[in-house]
Design a binder for these strands. Structure first.
Lengths: 252, 252
DNA sequence: TAGTGGTCTAGACCACTGC
DNA sequence: CAGTGGTCTAGACCACTAA
């Protein structure tokens, strides 16, 4: 005999709505009933409904468009295969691993890139073995899947390698950044990534259109050439509810 | 000239408290003021304070002990180095990679293990190439750092390899599971992990003492031997706010 | 028994959207 | 202008803890 622990109403309602969404009772991109309607239907206060919707927002299942309504999310889970990106990129030609994955899911992709020479913050500078505040080449990319922003990435490259090369162009050409680094005699030999989950900062919340209750997966990718020199640091932010990461490596 | 967007009060208060905690104004393990006191001090309703505290709970910065108060979290960020676990394990001897990391952080570690033969769910069975519902050897582990639960892991091993061996004992001996698999002629040759971030299920919430607003990092690790056969599937759940993951692999 | 946080209803006002 | 969700105050009751 276990004691029944009645769930709070906002959670019961959240569970009910989640089930309905996952069973496809609301088409992706369509709106839920309004909070007032649900309040009447389920016999609770609107604030209780609001709290339930907050839960679903935090999970990324719905998003709110203010003044219009609460919309069911449209995109499926996106997979990011870290270890095989080079191979995928080569197979995919100029498209890149990200675009190949988007096409697999039947999504239209778009991406902006902004190139600049910026002073490196202390942690980046330490990795690139330059003095803090010294400039490095940055490639800031923002990627969209069917017009939904799904990834921010800022890549840092040492100027003595990258300045004046195709790495400073918007289009890095076939095989992308790593192929160009190889052309320049700095082919990546090892990759390392650290992964954390945290709230979005203001910039990420704005650009990725995220709520503060949602989470980003923050990845720092470090590429080293055969001599052990760091040739690229890439900081990546992904809406956590939208992605699945995959890694693969040989036993030692 | 940008328009000032005043933050809602509960968020201003959450930011204020987060700063205070991160600057060490509340010692780890000590309690914040009560919600009523804060409501008086800051001139807001207690429900507004409660909402701010909800934010900090979701971030894992504090936990609530009902009837007692709101406690500042004690544990530092824990690092999980996926690629070098074998090496760390060997260096650490019988202690294992998890314990070695805990000792690095000055934490006392403890872990329970429960061994059983259980019918494999469909996805696990498919990986192990057995019929769904057929039994496999399971090792369910729960790990603690200074008496705080920080990890759940359920390992699945095929019975034809593992039954009656040291893999079915609580202590797998020096080098752990992978060394025993090697002894049995199934040394892991490659590892693959998929990583997702999601709300805790009921079991995880209970065993890891998590709020539903917090997130788990759910990892599925698959070990294959030299023939490509899956020799272990390990499902791992970590409180997302408590961990940092690290991966490393050679370029192709 | 006093104090803690958890939840609910009620009423109100706001900013934003679309007609 | 009506409808949407966002936020705040107010008052209330509950379960749990500690003394």
């Amino acid at each position: 005999m276990t004691i029944e622990t009645p769930q709070p109403r906002y959670r019961q309602l959240a569970d009910l709505l989640r089930d309905a969404i996952e069973r496809g009772q609301y088409a992706p991109g369509s709106a839920l009933e309004s909070e007032s309607e649900m309040a009447t239907r389920y016999g609770v206060d609107r604030r209780t409904v609001n709290r339930a919707v907050l839960t679903l927002r935090a999970e990324g299942l719905v998003r709110v468009e203010r003044g219009r309504g609460t919309i069911v999310r449209e995109l499926p889970l996106i997979r990011r295969d870290a270890a095989n990106r080079q191979r995928i990129r080569e197979e995919a030609g100029a498209r890149g691993a990200f675009q190949a994955e988007m096409e697999r899911l039947g999504l239209v992709t778009r991406s902006d890139v902004e190139i600049a020479e910026l002073p490196a913050p202390a942690d980046i500078a330490a990795l690139l073995a330059i003095d803090a505040g010294t400039s490095a080449l940055t490639r800031r990319r923002q990627m969209y899947a069917s017009n939904v922003p799904v990834q921010l990435a800022t890549s840092w490259l040492p100027l003595d390698i990258a300045a004046g090369t195709q790495l400073a162009e918007a289009d890095t050409g076939p095989g992308g950044t790593y192929s160009r680094l190889a052309d320049l005699g700095h082919a990546p030999a090892t990759f390392a990534e650290t992964v954390r989950v945290r709230p979005p900062n203001d910039n990420e919340a704005r650009l990725l259109r995220m709520d503060t209750e949602q989470r980003v997966i923050a990845i720092r990718r470090i590429a080293r050439d055969g001599t052990g020199r760091v040739v690229e640091v890439n900081d990546i932010a992904l809406p956590a509810h939208q992605w699945e990461l995959a890694y693969e490596w040989p036993a030692e």
